[in-house]
Amino acid sequence: MNTSSSETSTAATVRIIASPQSWVEGEAVRQLEAVSRLPGMRLAVGLPDLHPGKGAPVGAAFESEGFLYPYLVGSDIGCGMGLWDVDLLTRKAKAERWAAKLDLEGPWEGDTAAVLAEHGASGTGFESALGTVGGGNHFAEVQRVEEVHDARVFEALGLREERLLLLVHSGSRGLGEAILRTHVDRHAAGGLTADSDEARAYLTRHDGAVLWAKANRALVAQRTLDGIGATGRRVLDVCHNSVTARHADGRVGWLHRKGAAPWDEGPVVIPGSRGALSYLVLPVGTGEQSAYSLAHGAGRKWTRSAARERLKERFTAESLTRTSFKSHVVCEDRDLLFEEAPPAYKAIDRVVTDLVEAGLVRVVATLAPVLTYKTRGRTAE
């Protein structure tokens, strides 16, 4: 394979899965190596979308033994992506009309308790935000099929080339942040002994947030489908920020994913920016070299402040509401519009090619944006 895997002689194995053609910022590598020196750490893997985060890199997976680290999971516990097959033909898409009226802001007026119960989640006090996208790089995107590369897998998922799809990227909203804050107030960035009462209490709250986030994505999808006058069927849902136990050779390890899709849960979607293709891929191989994880997106190329400064000189806000695919973007937060603009991200085709060359995935289909919803500029109370 052409994709290189570099390892260092720190306390844990440090591996970066990226080809020489991929640019990985030095600060992200420094953060990856710093994490590898934490007590109990055994493996730190940077994926092709690796980029610096707050104290720990994003686009990475970490395996530890005897300790687990809530700050490696971060504040948006359970953040991930769900894909829905939309019962609407692509040729009947009305992106301009949808962009004018679709509104996912504010509390949902339905039965949130029933939605949570359907997904095995419980009430948390954050239900006013249930069914909302959130800020940052979160979105709900109506997509069309650009090209099918593996018809057998595509059809096995019940998908049809002439129909629209819906991709939702969101997480646990303020719930995950509150859980992390409780930990940080007591332990700062320190870890927890895996067999301690505090670790068990954190894992209980963490697992609840993962379920809450899944319910949130389902409700965002429902609100979006209602808004465009369609119905849909969930095809997949995966989590990008989590810590889970892995049992092997009589030992228990802890797999932390920080902005990393699971390799071991079936097909996943790896999105580009709102002005690029998304890739539906099937994991292949063993997954061991990548800590059973995959890239979760294109990965940021520029910080948010750098994106604002650079792109405001090149584009108007209005021009960023349309893409090279002639898709529409709903984002009434001017700063966010520039921060999340396509040039702020790495090239998704290079990220996916690195995974293919590393023997980790096979491309099933590429998906193009039709309508990307970010925000109407209001937030849930």
Rank of each mutant, 00 (worst) to 15 (best):
R30K: 12
L32M: 10
E33P: 00
A34M: 09
V35F: 06
V35L: 07
S36Q: 03
R37N: 15
R37L: 10
R37C: 14
L38G: 03
L38W: 15
L38E: 12
P39Q: 11
P39R: 10
G40C: 12
G40S: 11
G40D: 14
L43W: 03
L43M: 12
A44H: 00
V45W: 00
G46W: 04
G46M: 08
L47V: 06
P48G: 10
P48H: 04
D49M: 10
D49P: 08
L50D: 07
L50P: 04
G53L: 11
K54T: 15
A56W: 04
P57W: 01
P57K: 02
V58N: 06
A60W: 00
A61Y: 03
F62L: 07
F62T: 02
F62E: 06
E63T: 09
S64A: 15
E65V: 10
E65W: 05
E65L: 09
F67I: 11
F67A: 07
L68G: 02
L68V: 10
Y69T: 01
P70L: 06
P70C: 12
Y71V: 09
L72H: 04
G74H: 09
S75I: 09
S75L: 08
D76F: 01
I77K: 00
G78M: 05
C79Y: 01
C79L: 07
M81D: 07
G82F: 02
G82K: 01
G82V: 01
L83K: 06
D85N: 14
D85Q: 13
V86S: 05
D87M: 09
D87E: 15
L88K: 11
L89V: 12
T90N: 09
A93Y: 04
K94R: 15
A95K: 05
A95C: 07
E96A: 08
R97T: 13
D103Y: 15
D103P: 14
L104M: 14
E105G: 12
E105D: 15
G106R: 03
G106I: 09
P107Y: 02
W108Y: 15
D111G: 14
D111I: 02
D111E: 13
T112L: 01
A113L: 09
A113W: 05
L116A: 08
A117V: 11
E118W: 03
E118N: 13
E118T: 15
H119T: 05
H119Y: 15
G120K: 10
S122Y: 09
G123W: 01
T124I: 06
T124H: 05
G125I: 07
F126V: 03
E127V: 06
S128H: 07
A129K: 00
